[in-house]
């Protein structure tokens, strides 16, 4: 999954640019906190097999709905308690982190990749190509995003991969629009004309000259988009259309535990808090990235 991300967002920027961006970025305390949280979550997700005390799908028939250790009845054997069929909450949350982050990254990578290609094509060729692509995106935008995702999953059948595709399609238009707008702006600039004059061909012009200069707004949108992707995937999971049991997924865990809101708060609250923290961290990070990368906001 992370490989796809690097493929999609890898920009060949000179080192000075990175240093400059970082110096802007680190001044934004919220963004740094977001980055730290995300780094921690990535670490937890990557090492889930090592640090999780139990298998996320292992049921324990003698420990249904055990509370977290600090509450009466809880024990250190299950630090954050167990769910309705005796699975360890902590382990499920850890494996859920892996799945949710993977979904967020994969969805974003997929929609950034497709979105950029479509946007680039539309902005470069203009004419009929542009009209067709942009009108299709407009149609997607007219439909409520979650509803559209539900329809797509209903057609493809429930499951993680299908949910991932559905959310990618839903998020596509914003990337296409951004890419197209950036391409159109760049195409009018002198360096592009210069490149054209010196005989640079279509594909090479697009990828080597125009694309790197459109990357900044795409990166910002992608960072913010990860949180939307995680949230949408969790929503699909909540509706029973995302990850299928026994896979540990935060949205699904939340949905399965609704009935226990009053009786066993931890099975409902903890996955909710995880979703909240993760989405918030990505939003903070995205904000910081925008501040650092957007030329209009630079001092």
């Amino acid at each position: 999954m992370t490989q796809i991300l690097s493929a999609g967002t890898d920009i060949e920027a000179p080192p000075q640019a990175f240093a400059e961006t970082w110096s802007y970025f680190k001044e934004n305390r919220g963004a740094v906190i977001g980055l730290v949280i995300i780094a921690a979550l990535v670490l937890v997700g990557a090492t889930a097999d090592l640090i999780a005390p139990y298998s996320p799908i292992l049921t324990n028939n003698s420990a249904f709905l055990k509370p977290p250790f600090w509450q009466a009845g809880g024990s250190l054997a299950h630090v954050l308690g167990t769910d309705a069929i005796g699975r360890d909450m902590l382990s499920r949350l850890i494996f859920g982190a892996r799945l949710s982050l993977s979904i967020g990254v994969a969805v974003t990578a997929l929609s950034v990749l497709c979105g950029t290609i479509l946007g680039l094509t539309a902005g470069y060729f203009r004419g009929v190509t542009e009209i067709v692509i942009m009108r299709v995106m407009d149609i997607i935008l007219t439909l409520p995003s979650l509803l559209l995702a539900i329809v797509i999953v209903a057609i493809l059948g429930p499951g993680v991969v299908n949910a991932l595709l559905a959310v990618s399609i839903v998020l596509l238009p914003s990337y296409v629009r951004i890419a197209r707008a950036a391409v159109i702006t760049e195409m009018a600039k002198d360096y592009v004309t210069a490149a054209k004059v010196s005989g640079v061909g279509g594909i090479r012009l697009m990828i080597n000259e125009v694309l790197p200069n459109c990357a900044a707004p795409l990166i910002v949108q992608a960072t913010l988009g990860i949180s939307t992707a995680i949230l949408d995937a969790a929503a699909l999971g909540f509706l029973g259309l995302g990850a299928q049991p026994p896979t540990a997924e935060w949205g699904t865990m939340l949905a399965d535990a609704r009935e226990f809101v009053l009786r066993a708060w931890w099975v409902v609250t903890l996955p909710g808090i995880m979703i909240l923290i993760t989405v918030l961290a990505f939003n903070l990070l995205g904000d910081g990235m925008r501040d650092a990368l957007d030329p209009k906001l630079k001092r």
Binding site: I57, L58, T59, I85, G240, P245, P246
Partner: peptide
């Protein structure tokens, strides 16, 4: 029924049967 299915799924995994829950 879904919760029952998850318990059955875990039990069946013990004897090597891989069950996919559908609804």
């Amino acid at each position: 029924a879904k919760r029952i299915a998850e318990l059955m799924q875990a039990d069946l995994a013990q004897v090597g049967i891989k069950a996919e829950i559908k609804s």
